[in-house]
Write a protein that binds this DNA or RNA. Structure first.
Lengths: 202, 202
DNA sequence: GTCTATACTAAGATAGAC
DNA sequence: GTCTATCTTAGTATAGAC
């Protein structure tokens, strides 16, 4: 239960964020949200029109936080490769999955353009940001000129999202780490002057 | 509604498979299954102990079919790269997602070792099969010797699974195709004698 | 703003007739 | 094997008092 020092709408949004991450949209009931938020039925319907409205507020906030967290790493110091690596290797609660990506498996989210929009925008933003970084690396002579920024960025985001799938299937973060390590090896081989025989170096 | 020429348990399993794919475990109710299968309440509980029991039968069958379909391509003709490419580019109903992978986003499936087992085994099998193929390519001199089979295989499966996430987020199969294309470019660059400047060649 | 009452449908299952 | 009846709890609200 969330601190009473948050306003009721705040607590409702935070509770919804947590439940959406854990159980998805379909698996999250208004009743469960109210319980976790410590708010009554009437209170929830006073501040939000209903489940979709509340979920939209929660999804928007989660999406925004994810973008901010990614930007902190991707806009950091170091070479293009180093920043991509830092992003992929940063601390994650792997077994919980991605709070944004998981929503794409929710039929009701995908069926609603409104609920899907923040999800789409966030993954698209990430893809764009990574593509710009790869392009920077190519133009700066760090990556080989044949590396396609847009396609490479899509592959990076997909591997990340799929890594969560593998981890959750096996019940262990190891599969995620392995997939990411494999991707990084493939990327390192595209650095100019890369000795492929050294690509085993972790 | 399924043909009456199938037995009732058959129709129940097929209906469950379809609904699990579409709406996940949490979003699939016994009532909806019965409606789609054209079977009564009592009928369903006569043949299956309940929702988890029926879901297990459905998941097992879906997992088996997925393995068989993958094996048909991966055990085919051609070089290691060619077979991996054929598998990644084969016809898919991208926007529906992977009927096995999507289950990892289902809290009740992940919470049950029994329901999770077929999912885990299938993705693990796929990873192993791809790893063997990469190893074959390395040992046959097709791929560069520094390419790690296990890690590469994990990356391939993850990119595939994540490709579905991107496609469903954007409502279009294009993002999936782009991610796969990016992965194939990265893989092609590891073929022995690969001219990276030609790696743009699709 | 928050609470309680009320409503109606669905989820998930058991019992027993046929 | 299948059907109908019944049960209990949850889902998703609306109405109106406080």
């Amino acid at each position: 239960m969330y601190s009473r020092r948050m306003t009721t709408p705040e607590r409702l949004i935070e509770a919804t964020r947590e439940l959406l991450w854990e159980r998805g949209y379909v698996g999250t009931s208004p009743k469960a949200v109210q319980r976790l938020a410590g708010a009554g039925q009437g209170s929830m319907y006073h501040h939000f029109r209903g489940k979709p409205d509340l979920a939209l507020a929660a999804i928007r906030r989660t999406a925004e936080e994810m973008r901010a967290a990614a930007a902190r790493v991707l806009d950091g110091d170091g070479s293009a490769y180093a920043r991509i690596e830092a992003y992929l290797l940063r601390e994650r609660d792997v077994l919980r999955g991605c709070p944004v990506g998981r929503l794409t498996m929710d039929p009701d989210v995908v069926a609603s353009d409104t609920l899907r929009a923040p999800v789409d925008e966030t993954l698209d933003w990430l893809r764009g940001r990574l593509a710009a970084l790869v392009r920077e690396g190519v133009e700066g002579g760090e990556f080989d000129g044949a590396l396609d920024p847009g396609r490479t960025a899509a592959t990076v985001v997909a591997t990340l999202q799929g890594g969560y799938v593998l981890a959750r299937a096996s019940g262990s973060a190891a599969a995620f780490d392995t997939a990411i390590a494999g991707l990084l090896e493939l990327l390192r081989a595209r650095r100019v002057g890369a000795a492929t025989d050294l690509s085993r170096t972790e």
